[in-house]
Design a protein around this nucleic acid. Structure first.
Lengths: 147, 147
DNA sequence: CTTTTGTAATTAACATGTGAATTACATCTT
DNA sequence: AAGATGTAATTCACATGTTAATTACAAAAG
């Protein structure tokens, strides 16, 4: 229960870990002129199908104001489309477009290769274990658990 | 070696984990009108003593352009001071001021309580193990390891 | 001594993070 | 139906992330 030093604190360790991982993916994304967040939006929509903005924001871990801007930019680049929901003028369904799907499929091999290389260097077992521990942390600390 | 779904990918898990942790600290920082990054700068300087900008940026995981802005703001609020290094007009030593130290000391009890509560919910052993795995990941993937 | 090369810090330009306020609709109340 | 309340999305204002370009200075090369 000592005061956590900056050298062994969860927030700093999580930040640094994310940095070293993303460093491997950034060149790929930059070559296709797409940001990390735009990439997350595309992948979530590709996996889950059309979603409303709120749900998409949650799944991609992007805040609503950011998502508004991202959607606007990606609509202009024709990577996603929006269709208003009947009976509720506020909501709209956001869907990935064929061009967006094509981009994801183009990048899939490289993305998998990068991820596999990380897993090899780090070790498959450690990797699985780390994912488990992170999921567990997210569970134990998510605000929905407050009774 | 399957394509990592967004539900079990390291980048997403690290991002979400950091979010749920920081959610506990944000109210405290907001009450003192200080940002997460400014807080990191203060703590690093308090722990390590005066540092040059480059070293401070590395230790606080802040990019140079951001640090330039942060230093400017914190100098105006008198939380840090800068002293030019003799013999090299480019460098300057950045140091935490008495007011900065006072802020850190004021917040220390609450900060420790928050951290301890997280550790209790999550489990001390899991917590240690997670830190170990993260350190190991950072080691195995940091760019200095490229031969 | 001048030029070249290297390094630290800053600036520029644009995207995102963040909290607060606002807008546009829906729904509930009376 | 009119007003009160709730919800989804956006807008605003400002801080930071990110890359590229630039400035300021130092050190090496000629």
């Amino acid at each position: 229960m000592l005061p956590p030093s900056t050298r062994r604190s969860l927030p700093m360790a999580l930040l640094r870990a994310r940095e070293v991982i993303m460093a491997h993916f950034r060149p790929m994304l930059a070559r296709h002129d797409i940001t990390e967040q735009q990439w997350r939006v595309l992948r979530v929509l590709a996996e889950a199908g059309p979603l409303e903005a709120t749900e998409l924001a949650n799944r991609a871990s992007i805040l609503p104001p950011s998502l508004t801007r991202i959607i606007k930019a990606m609509e202009e680049r024709q990577f996603i489309s929006r269709n208003k929901v009947k009976d509720d003028g506020r909501r709209a369904l956001l869907a990935i477009s064929p061009a967006g799907l094509a981009l994801i499929e183009d990048l899939a091999p490289e993305r998998i290769a990068i991820y596999d290389a990380i897993e090899q260097r780090y070790g498959a077992e450690q990797h699985e274990h780390l994912l488990d521990l992170l999921e567990s942390l997210i569970q134990s600390e998510s605000s929905e658990n407050q009774t």
